[in-house]
Design a protein around this nucleic acid. Structure first.
Lengths: 342, 342
DNA sequence: CTGTTAGCGCGTTCAC
DNA sequence: GTGAACGCGCTAACAG
């Protein structure tokens, strides 16, 4: 690779017979420049192939137009879609994104946040994990705005964008109950997951309660959100309760795994067994039968989070520091009910 | 958010009764510091909660430990997995990643590259698109190393990491041919796609040729790599050639779309019809029947690219500027052949 | 409308 | 081992 000598704002100034300040002005679109000199400067810039150094600019202005994004796993369909929403809005507001995977490991999360702060990001988007006191502390010590994406802190102190998971989960289970199933199993997220797992399981319990049914933990299993775990959980559930005729799952991958376990056990879906998932990732509409699921506005959660962050960074007025986005039910072919009964 | 007054290297120096130079040395692990003063400095750093400013450091050292990644679409399963490989290795070498989506639009690609250069990334990873003369030019003018990921420039001038797609495609089609199918359709990538589409289609043609069969473009369709387009293409193919009994697809999504079109047309897969895909994304093993496909080492392509880039950035010795990674055939249940016949 | 002048926070010689 | 001083490239008052 060649070793281009870097040409600076000073070179442009000299060549154009103006001061650095003037060059800086035209580069930054400051209107206080006579059209003639602006034209001249622009020309020199083109000729010299001048390209402003964002690092120097960042040091001088204390703004990097870069935001940090801590994400559990970019290769996960759910997070990838959220990330897309983030990036699109970031681009719209002229920000770039530093993306890093945490795998939900707290120690990594904290280190990443630290690194991003050192890089002087103008703001931070934190996706996924549980917010511990350690997180609180580092966020509080931070001089830049932070928005939680698809998660919340339990005390609801920090800004966040999310859906009401308990309610969403409850409605999904309600669909199954409305179909008249008497034994409805549940395949949960990992049980140490306070943010996703607990509220969704709670929604399941509440649906049962409201329908006058008993919660029975012998027909609940905990998966790791992946396909395989859904498959296995379903096999166990079938063994544990042969009378079962429906299952709600806390992720679409697990739901599809369950679907296949049922097919392998010669249970027809949805004729003999109903299945409902959570998230509505593309997979849900790429299997047969098409999976009924809770439609989680993944892209929007990302987009709205990023937009909220820009408001903080640009000191715009904030109407709501914490936003609950609506979700909906996508009733397809793994359930019988096709419309929500009001 | 609070307005923490930034504490700098100077503050640490004053507080520890040493010079800035010394603080800089301990922060950067320079051995030329007496253990006692090192200890002292470290202590002050902790007390003050000093956090080095990477922007200032970048300006002074002309290194940002950040690399730019231009990617077509992070919400696409294939690219997301490649990105994960990139990020993991980047982390390992202490680099951060600025990620931006190009949607394969050339104008956006060029602008992104420009922006990343301005941000003084230490290196650039370019995924996906076709390398035009405009790309060549901007890369050539760049002062930082560039590695092409999962693509190549036609003149093979730039470093890249990829697989031999023509060969991979040929082998996939060979599987179908070896099963004895006489009419093997093909669902291609968009036909303007020089990097993916053309070589894979070429592989299809070559397989036919080597088997003494005629290429017939009436049984070839062009999709957009998505599920829907695969579904539609398959329907058209069935209409165009009712005798068809097998189809090769240039992406797994399209293959699964085809699979479902076949099921909807009452064609049993693999008994009456064989289907093979390309990439081996998770979806391929989350549908029934399990999809046979070309296993593309997505994660590895990302990881190896990033590793290669670090070699350039760190001025390590480069054994190969262009690396072809091996691929393999993942023969599952959408084809009958379970082993490659040698 | 334009130029001068300070820094921004840190790495890096070069002396001591 | 340690410190003083310069400079990285640019923005931001402030003057004029």
């Amino acid at each position: 690779m060649k070793k281009k000598e870097t040409i600076t704002i000073y070179d442009v100034a000299r060549e154009a017979n103006v001061s650095m300040a003037t060059v800086s002005r035209v580069v930054n679109g400051n209107p206080n420049v006579k059209p003639a000199t602006r034209k001249k400067v622009l020309e020199v810039i083109r000729n010299l192939g001048y390209r402003p150094n964002a690092v120097a600019r960042g040091l001088a202005s204390k703004k990097t137009t870069t935001v940090g994004v801590v994400i559990p796993d970019i290769s996960n369909a759910f997070y990838a879609e959220v990330a897309r929403g983030i990036e699109d809005i970031a681009t719209m507001y002229n920000y770039n994104i530093i993306l890093s995977n945490s795998d939900l490991r707290q120690e990594r999360e904290l280190r990443l946040i630290e690194t991003l702060m050192e890089k002087q990001v103008d703001g931070l988007l934190f996706l996924g994990g549980t917010i511990t006191p350690a997180h609180q502390e580092i966020f509080a010590a931070s001089s830049v705005p932070v928005v939680l994406v698809a998660t919340e802190d339990l005390e609801k102190k920090l800004p966040f964008v999310h859906i009401d998971q308990k309610e969403a989960s409850k409605e999904a289970v309600m669909v199954l109950l409305a179909e008249g199933h008497k034994k409805v199993g549940y395949i949960s997220n990992p049980n140490e997951d306070m943010v996703q797992g607990v509220p969704r399981l709670e929604g399941y319990k509440q649906a049962l309660r409201e329908t006058g049914m008993e919660y029975d933990d012998s027909i609940v299993r905990y998966g790791d959100n992946g396909y395989r775990s859904g498959y296995q959980a379903m096999q166990e559930l079938l063994k544990a309760e042969p009378e079962m005729t429906a299952v709600a799952c806390a992720s679409d991958e697990m739901a599809v795994g369950a679907l296949h376990a049922l097919q392998d056990a010669d249970k027809k879906v949805p004729e003999a067994f109903s299945v409902i998932g959570f998230h509505n990732i593309p997979l849900a509409s790429q299997v047969r039968p098409l999976l009924s699921t809770v439609s989680y506005p993944m892209y929007d959660v990302g987009a709205v989070s990023m937009r909220l962050l820009t408001k903080y960074m640009l000191h715009e007025e904030i109407e709501a520091e914490q936003v609950w986005l609506p979700f909906s039910l996508e009733l397809r072919n793994s359930t019988n009910l096709k419309q929500w009964p009001e």
